[in-house]
Amino acid sequence: MSDQTAIPLEDTRKAQRISPTVVTVATIYGIVALMIVASRLVSPSFGGLSQLETILYLSSFLVFCAFGQGLVILVRGLDLSIASVITVGGVLSAALMDGSNAGLFYVIPAILLACALIGVVNGIGVTVFNVPPFIMTMAVGIIVYSLCLGFTGGTPRGFPAPVLNDFMGSRFIGIPAPVWLLIAFAAMGTLVQSFSPFGRKLTAVGNNPEAAYVAGLPSRRLTVSVYAISAACAGFTGILLASYANGATLRMGDDYLLPSIAAVVVGGSSILGGKGTFLGTVGGAMLLTTLATILSALGIGQGWKTIMEGAVILLALILLRDTVFDSLRAVLVRKD
């Protein structure tokens, strides 16, 4: 039948030559690149590859846990338990490995599994009992932290396996091993979030939970698995952090809670779910870390540094606004 005549005008006019996702991700990396170049003004040793290497190295921890956070946010959730779960990962790896390489191959999976189970509890609370994610994960975080406190009696004991500590300090082809890990993780995470049926299903659940249910998606199971993944990622971060610092502390996860959310949101994801890319999150994490390295090198008081940190986050958010994209796109489209 002659479909052409029946097509309403708006369909064709809304054709978008440039995907908003691509614009978002490009903008973030553009800002990061700009900051790195501009940082040469701050210190002559900045602006080079070694700075990039440091940034990648230091942002890797944030990237690992932000992946899980990003998936949770994708399905309209929020995971406030990751700080505690990072601690669990760190404490368990120090306690169970106890400075020996033996048994590494079952200890690591065991820790990840234990953390994933915490995530499952989160997920069940959120899906089956309909507790708001904010409350559920915060409460579980408090509970888990308190258990950690009791378990360690306040002092985490032991050391992670030396081989892990060596790994964190080693280089392959001149690049630190954790940076390779970051690259592999970013590639895998992108595949999972943006190029797998699983990622598509999560986006669907986050975009429209009712529709996802009606479409026959196992929304609950998906949501639970997302919280499990988030917790496992946090546990993984904890293992690496403990390996990096060669020991665990109980507050080792605190520094990652709000930044993990910030990285996801600055990375262009919607806190309301259903929209976001992992590459954007990686960019968001890099942006935050780059900012931190620059601020650290600036000879100004902590107050001003803190203000600048907040201001840059705000600025990035404003730059990444949809309306900014829309006008940008409008200009581009009008040109041709």
């Binding site: 900045f46 700075q51 440091t54 990096y244 610092a245 502390t249 870390t289 931190a292 390295t293 902590q302």
Partner: peptide, 25 residues
């Protein structure tokens, strides 16, 4: 050349120092 807060914590100190070292090796 650099002044940073490490929250009296080994791991935070390590990361903050690493950031400062990026600018001032």
């Amino acid at each position: 050349v650099s002044e940073y807060y490490s929250y009296w914590d080994d791991r935070t100190t390590q990361q903050e120092t690493a950031k400062a070292l990026a600018a001032h090796p």
